[in-house]
Design a protein around this nucleic acid. Sequence first.
DNA 1: TTGTACGCGTTATCAG
DNA 2: CTGATAACGCGTACAA
Lengths: 342, 342
Amino acid sequence: MTKKNATIYDISKKLNISVATVSRALNDNPRISQATKELVVKTAKEMNYKQNNLAKALKSGETKNIGIIVPYINTNFFSSVIRGIEEELSPHGYHVIICQSHEDVVTEKKHLNTLLNAQVDGIFMSVSRTTIDTEHIQHILNTTNTPIIFFDRKKDIPGISTVTIDDYKGGYMATEHLIDEGYKNICHFAGDQNLEIYQNRLRGYKQALIDRQFQVKEENIVFTGSSIDAGIDAVKKLWSSTSVPDAIFSASDSTALGACQELKKRKIKIPQEVAVIGFSNEPFTQFMELPMSSVDQTPVLMGNMAGQVFLDHIKDNFSGVSIEKKVVLAPKIIVRKSSKRK
Amino acid sequence: MTKKNATIYDISKKLNISVATVSRALNDNPRISQATKELVVKTAKEMNYKQNNLAKALKSGETKNIGIIVPYINTNFFSSVIRGIEEELSPHGYHVIICQSHEDVVTEKKHLNTLLNAQVDGIFMSVSRTTIDTEHIQHILNTTNTPIIFFDRKKDIPGISTVTIDDYKGGYMATEHLIDEGYKNICHFAGDQNLEIYQNRLRGYKQALIDRQFQVKEENIVFTGSSIDAGIDAVKKLWSSTSVPDAIFSASDSTALGACQELKKRKIKIPQEVAVIGFSNEPFTQFMELPMSSVDQTPVLMGNMAGQVFLDHIKDNFSGVSIEKKVVLAPKIIVRKSSKRK
DNA sequence: TTGTACGCGTTATCAG
DNA sequence: CTGATAACGCGTACAA
């Protein structure tokens, strides 16, 4: 009942030729006669021969596997990036291994090690919220040849390529849009400042205000989590203060959604009294009671680009060159009813 | 600049002992002296020794990798199932490789072969829409020892374990719920009948009607795709007929969403005039203008169960037994405003 | 054009 | 308790 695969050894025996010849014939080596080549290929098919990638990998050092570490896979953003990576790399014969860090740096570290142990040819990752220190990543850089590529949530580490969107610009565009629509007192729900993406969205928000002669009021910036409840709480907090905002730019769609829910509860009209714009363009935003504006991150494209950067790395490494690439994609602002007053 | 890993060979040289002893010490073999064991482990750590899984896999035949084939990864349902599988298997040292069939049987076949070639220890899959013939899958069953596990979209093949939800019951419950709410002329948006899941939802719909003394009218069953537009078209079709329905049970959330959009356009009130209930409990359903009822498929749990079935297979196979398991999960009906008239 | 023999890193068998 | 060696399946340098 055990089913064993045929090896080049079996073929060589059957044909009374050496394994070397079989191997070369199968790999289309130029210095082999057309006749034996065809014969070998034919009998290989007959014997249902399948090349053993493990043995090949052991010899070559290339597994044709790449690893991806994300906080969670079942979010629209991350699963879309993964889709992009898979579609870029699959045609080149790579398999995609996925791991979830659960936003925990210890788990992230563990996965990093097991992936390295599995001899993956490259690692793509979006760091977890709790990843402050990056020495575990730098260590890999110093002790292995495995290329690491950050996407979206990056850390500044020399030698590591990154693919991100211009979050600064995204924040800037969203804020400017609200100004253009005539809103005067724009607040910001800022995300975890340990992550660069949220720092940049905040920076964009501030700069847009400054450039348009608005005051940056610290009390208008609320640092929230990224849940619906966090959005509800943020509204409660702001609307109990003296200067109530007339627009919300949230760094996350979920908190923006929470804000919409709480505003509705308080019978505050969107977008007449208050505008809301989120970030990520999650699928639910367009189907909401009041379709919500957001900033699209083109996640599938981000995955495609990350895949390309990896392929470039492989090529470069082959020729001994090591290049660090920084790909920055343009965010797309999606204006819907929640922020259109004019 | 090339960075090579230390091997047990390097350790054996340094310590002037044989590789066999090193290997045994590292694997905690009982018949090795505590002294040498500790010495080996210590120097291994010093030399930053990492076990080469490839070599181990070549020897043992186990890669500790499993493959998953889904139509697309960036949908809530499939990415959630994958999450469930990953979380069940990761603690056991397995890595999860994902592939997308793009609903194309040829691509599915290709991935099946490359996964087999990559020597995965098991394959999880949800068949594509275009998978009619299953001989490529049966062939694998006959020629390899690699266990295959279907989840959600299965085919009836003896020897293959499956993890599904009771779609029949889901369809039955949804329809019964509409009856209980007092709706009299319930129509059904049925999905692609090549997939068992849609057949079963339809069967459940019919049986519920019969059991409650309602007539099954063929003109009330519309076979649609699973897009929003398909839902819009279905409403157009039904509302141009003589007997207009007062309730819609859609086998897909997206078509149900399309229906809601078209009904709103026609100023038909939900749930007063028409009830709508979908299937899958996609995240957007709860945030819609009118929160939509749906049938939850507990996708993460489905993934967990699939992972467990796989682990059982491995264990069984170890003891020579081969068992076929059929896990059927219970659907959960989620009632929201779109179908509550009472 | 083809064959021989070795190495990739482990584990397992058989001696001792 | 430890050592020598074969085997896993493949690719390739060196020979012929």
